[in-house]
C-alpha cells in the first residue's frame, strides 16, 4: 500500500498540480494577451497601469474577483447553482491528462486518448446548461438553450474531423498521432487534411462559445447569457473554464494537425541541425500560441453570427465537407496515394 502511494500516487499528484498550476498561469496571461492584442488591433494600448507594461493586470483582476461577494439569487436552485461552475471547470482540466507535451512527456498515455478528449470536452456543456437553468432567469435560460444546441451540433463536425485524423494516423493515441506526422512540415496533417483542419478549428471556436460564435453570451441580445446571475469567484470559474478550453483546443490543433512537438525544420539541410537543440515543448507551445493568437484575431475581426446562421454553418456546411473528405482520405489511405499515409492497414479476420 505504501509502495503504491510513493511509486504512483505522489508523483502523479505532483504532475497534476504542475500542469494545473501552469495552466492557470497561462489562463491568467491569456486574458492579458487578449486585451493587449485586441487593443493594438483597434489602435489602442490596452491595460498598461498595473505593474510594468500592465503585466500585473491579471493578478489584480483575480484579486478583485476573489474579494467580491457571491450573490445567490433567491429563487434559484441553490445546489445546482453552485455545482454548475464546478461542472464547467472539471472537464476543462481533466482533458489535459492525455496531452503529450513532448516525446514521453504525458501524464496518462492511454490508447484511446483522442476519444477520451472528445468525451471529456463534450461534458463541458453541462456546466453551461445547468448554470442557465438553476439561475431561474430568462436571459440565462435562453443562453443555456442556445449553447446546448450549438455545442451538440458542432461536436458532430468536430468528431468527424477527428475521425479523419484517426484514419490518417491509424491510432487513437495522441503520441502515436504526432509520431505518424514525422518527416517535416509538409508531412504534418494540415496539408492532406486541410478541410478537416479548418473545420476542426472553426468548430473548436464554436465549442468554446467564443466570438463570432458567442451567441450563448450575446451581450447585445441576452445581456450575458448563461452567467448573467453569477458574480465574484463563481463567475471567474466560468471564465477560467472558457480560457482553459481555448488553450486545450489550440494545443489539440497543434498536436493533431501541426505535428505536436516536432520541429518545423525537419528534413531541411542547414536549418534542422541549427535548431536541433530546441526542446520539443518549445515548438508545441509556439504552435499553440499561434492558434491562440488566431482565436483573438478572429474575435477582433468578425461580427457575431446570427443564431440560424450558426446552425446552418454547422449542419449544412461543415458536416457535408467532413463527410466528403473522409471518403477521400480513406481512398488515399487504402490505395496508398501520396507520401502521408504510409502506415499499413492490416486486414485480417480473427
Amino acid at each position: 500500500m505504501l509502495d503504491l502511494l510513493t511509486q504512483h500516487l505522489l508523483p502523479n499528484i505532483g504532475k497534476i498540480l504542475l500542469i494545473v498550476a501552469i495552466l492557470m498561469l497561462a489562463v491568467a496571461y491569456l486574458t492579458l494577451a487578449e486585451r493587449k492584442v485586441i487593443g493594438y488591433i483597434q489602435m489602442r494600448i490596452g491595460p498598461n497601469r498595473v505593474g510594468p507594461r500592465g503585466l500585473l493586470q491579471p493578478i489584480a483582476d483575480g484579486l478583485k474577483l476573489l474579494l467580491k461577494e457571491i450573490i445567490l439569487p433567491t429563487r434559484s436552485n441553490l445546489y445546482l447553482f453552485v455545482l454548475a461552475p464546478v461542472l464547467a471547470i472539471g472537464p476543462a482540466l481533466a482533458a489535459w491528462a492525455v496531452i503529450p507535451f513532448d516525446a514521453g512527456m504525458v501524464l496518462a498515455d492511454i490508447n484511446a486518448g483522442l476519444l477520451y478528449v472528445l468525451a471529456i470536452t463534450s461534458m463541458g456543456v453541462y456546466g453551461i446548461v445547468i448554470a442557465g437553468w438553476a439561475s431561474n432567469s430568462r436571459y440565462a435560460f435562453l443562453g443555456a438553450m442556445r449553447s446546448a444546441a450549438q455545442v451538440v451540433s458542432y461536436e458532430i463536425a468536430m468528431g468527424f474531423a477527428l475521425v479523419g485524423v484517426l484514419i490518417a494516423a491509424g491510432s487513437l493515441n495522441l503520441s502515436e498521432i504526432v509520431m505518424a506526422q514525422q518527416g517535416g512540415i509538409f508531412y504534418w496533417y494540415w496539408l492532406p487534411l486541410l478541410p478537416l483542419f479548418v473545420v476542426y478549428f472553426v468548430s473548436g471556436v464554436a465549442e468554446t462559445n467564443r466570438a463570432p460564435f458567442d451567441i450563448a453570451e450575446g451581450e447585445s441580445e441576452i445581456v450575458a447569457g448563461f452567467h448573467v446571475e453569477y458574480s465574484g469567484m463563481a463567475f471567474a470559474i466560468f471564465f477560467l473554464a472558457e480560457y482553459a478550453d481555448m488553450i486545450l483546443i489550440s494545443i489539440l490543433a497543434a498536436t493533431l494537425f501541426m505535428g505536436g512537438w516536432l520541429s518545423p525544420f525537419e528534413g531541411i539541410p542547414v536549418l534542422e541541425p541549427m535548431f536541433a537543440w530546441v526542446p520539443g515543448l518549445v515548438w508545441l507551445l509556439l504552435k499553440t500560441s499561434m492558434f491562440l493568437f488566431i482565436y483573438l484575431w478572429i474575435r477582433a475581426t468578425f461580427p457575431r453570427y446570427r443564431y440560424d446562421q450558426v446552425m446552418r454553418l454547422g449542419w449544412k456546411v461543415f458536416i457535408p465537407v467532413t463527410l466528403v473528405w473522409l471518403v477521400i482520405i480513406s481512398t488515399m489511405q487504402v490505395f496508398d496515394i501520396g507520401p502521408w499515409f504510409n502506415n499499413i492497414v492490416e486486414v485480417t479476420s480473427p
Binding site: A119, M123, V129, W133, F141
Partner: peptide, 19 residues
C-alpha cells in the same frame, strides 16, 4: 463512447427538452 454518446450528446438533448 458511453460517455461521449449518451452523456455528451443524448442526455444534453434530453435535458434540453425536459427543461
Amino acid at each position: 463512447s458511453l460517455v461521449l454518446v449518451y452523456v455528451g450528446a443524448v442526455l444534453v438533448l434530453f435535458l434540453f427538452v425536459v427543461m
